[in-house]
Simulated scan of single mutants.
Amino acid sequence: MTDQRVLITGSAGVVGTLMRPRLKRDGRVLRLLDLAPQTASDASEEIVTASVTDAEAMASACEGVDALIHLGGHSRENSWEATLDVNINGTQTVLEAARAAGVSRVILASSNHAVGFRRNDSDLPADSSPRPDTYYGVSKAAIEALGSLYHSRFGMDVIVIRIGSCFETPLPLGPRGLTTWLSPDDGARLFEACLSAPSPGYRLIWGVSDNTRRIYSLSEAEALGYKSLDDAEVYAEQLASKPAPTGAAAEYVGGPFCTAPLGVFNPL
């Protein structure tokens, strides 16, 4: 049986690091691409040191690939120039390399910040139109549009995941994490559903766990086979003494990103 080869860009980042061990399977090879140094743990991993903005490197990385998980790029607010170069131009470079190589399944990491200025209403649809809160949010809205274009033009199956917050626990995010958390194990379940769903076409889905305080619709992800088994509420007691968001940070999906300075790196 031929191995399934999955290319993961940004594999040394926060989400990539969490997903790498969880997406290992018999009969699957993970091709791990990042600018940061990495070491293969065994023969089921292939290491590529490159930037998503390097068209030649991406073309080579996509050769023989069955599916692509695109996590690469700036994961927080940055200057417009850096955001445009890496997140938007880089994603187009990745998609074009995937198209040329015949990669039929692409999973793109978007963010809640693509709709950051939507209000915190319950059961927010996954395909809500963009209302970005930052340059970073604009780049994620552009990534979603690029995914739609490459599906419509070239028939590529493209699933875009609007990720809430994927960390080991929601604790670094404070009380907001009780709403936005995607547990690493649920993250792996979600990516597996995206990899295995038959002929999904173009889909926008939320990437969150089934949290008690969830405001995001999971019906779109569940239609692909996702089943969340985790809930951030188990951390509620540990966060009880932390100050709750106020003002715009409490009113809008993007939380503190809605008032943070544009173009300035924000660690959370």
Rank of each mutant, 00 (worst) to 15 (best):
A40I: 14
G254E: 02
S111F: 11
L23H: 09
L30A: 07
V160Q: 10
R25V: 03
R153Y: 09
D185P: 00
M19A: 15
L95C: 13
P267C: 00
F191W: 15
R20T: 14
Q238I: 01
L95R: 13
V48Y: 13
R203P: 05
V264K: 15
L239S: 05
V253M: 05
S122H: 13
V103R: 09
T180W: 07
S79E: 07
A260N: 13
R118M: 09
S209L: 04
A145P: 03
A100G: 10
T49P: 01
C258G: 08
P132M: 07
I143P: 00
G102F: 01
A248D: 15
V264W: 14
R214N: 15
V160R: 09
S196R: 15
D26L: 11
G102S: 02
A61V: 07
S148R: 15
L124I: 11
G225P: 11
N112K: 11
S165M: 10
R5E: 07
D186E: 04
P200D: 13
L178I: 00
P267D: 02
L229A: 14
E220F: 08
N87G: 06
S148N: 12
D210Q: 10
T17Q: 15
L268Y: 15
E251Y: 00
G247N: 02
A97H: 00
P267R: 04
M58Q: 01
A142V: 10
D3C: 09
G155A: 05
S60L: 15
L108Y: 09
Q38P: 11
S60T: 15
E251N: 06
A188I: 08
E233G: 03
G187M: 13
N266D: 14
L108P: 06
L35T: 11
M58D: 02
L218T: 03
L18Y: 04
Q4E: 11
P200K: 08
Y226T: 04
H113A: 12
Y252S: 07
I143M: 14
D26N: 14
K140H: 08
L146M: 06
F117K: 09
